[in-house]
């Protein structure tokens, strides 16, 4: 009796095995979902996000703009209103909330240009950077200190006091020349019209830059 029952079951064995395999395959679909787990490993993200390598100083940026370096794109992550009020030269506005939109991706995820993100401080720009870094977008930098630092260093540089080293004076003259390039006028060259000022300052800036480079090399 038992034997007969067993034989009956055994005659279905291939079907049973097939069923088990199908069930297992179905189980695969239900396995924990890793689709949310997009992007680079969290450990790498942490070490990238903590390292200060991503920062670019306002001086470096000013130098790039003045020398018309074509290799970078400035991205403003503030809202449209602040962007319209004032933005750095040739910046593109991608408000933080539109960072992952399709049209933004064209700017952010490419190899051709370096991306420099900025906001009023570097808080939102950092956040944008971290999100992009997780998605493994390349060549992104953040303007350290953002627009506020841009103002205090480039647009309205502090005049060094007499007891400061020569480097401080060199830096100041570089910054002053840069600020003139960005439209700030100083009383001592009031006679010149604005256009000519721009031209002369541009030349001066390149000169300063060379001097600065030599100093850097020496160090």
């Amino acid at each position: 009796m038992i034997n007969r029952n067993l034989a009956k079951v055994l005659s279905f064995r291939y079907k049973i095995i097939a069923l088990v395999l199908v069930l297992l395959a179905a189980g695969l679909v239900l396995l924990p979902k890793y689709e949310k787990h997009e992007g680079i490993n969290p450990k790498d993200l942490l070490s990238n996000a903590i390292s200060p390598e991503r920062y670019i100083s306002t001086d470096e940026l000013a130098d790039k703009i003045v020398n018309q370096d074509p290799s970078f794109l400035l991205i403003d992550v503030r809202d449209e209103k602040s962007f319209k009020k004032h933005a750095l030269p040739d910046a593109i506005n991608i408000p933080l909330e539109k960072l992952l939109d399709e049209e933004s991706e064209g700017y952010l995820n490419q190899d051709e240009y370096d991306i420099i993100l900025y906001s009023n401080d570097n808080f939102y720009a950092d956040q944008a950077w971290i999100i992009c870094n997780r998605l493994a977008y390349k060549n992104h930098r953040v303007l350290k200190g953002g627009v506020n630092k841009w103002f205090t260093t480039i647009i309205n540089p502090k005049i060094p006091t007499e007891n400061m080293p020569k480097v401080a004076f060199d830096l100041y003259s570089f910054r002053k020349a840069a600020s003139m390039y960005f439209g700030v006028a100083y009383p001592e060259q009031a006679q010149a019209t604005q256009n000519t000022t721009k031209k002369t300052t541009k030349k001066r800036v390149t000169l300063k830059k060379k001097k600065k480079m030599a100093a850097e090399g020496g160090c």
């Binding site: 503030r78 602040s82 009020k85 004032h86 906001s119 009023n120 401080d121 808080f123 939102y124 953002g146 627009v147 506020n148 841009w150 103002f151 205090t152 647009i155 309205n156 960005f182 439209g183 700030v184 006028a185 100083y186 009383p187 060259q189 009031a190 006679q191 604005q194």
Partner: peptide, 24 residues
């Protein structure tokens, strides 16, 4: 404050131009 816009760059530039043109 986070991300506070501290300075008005446009106004500063305008002001500087004005000042420069005032002093001959």
């Amino acid at each position: 404050l986070i991300e506070n816009s501290k300075f008005d760059i446009n106004a500063f530039i305008k002001e500087s131009v004005k000042k420069a043109s005032l002093k001959p």
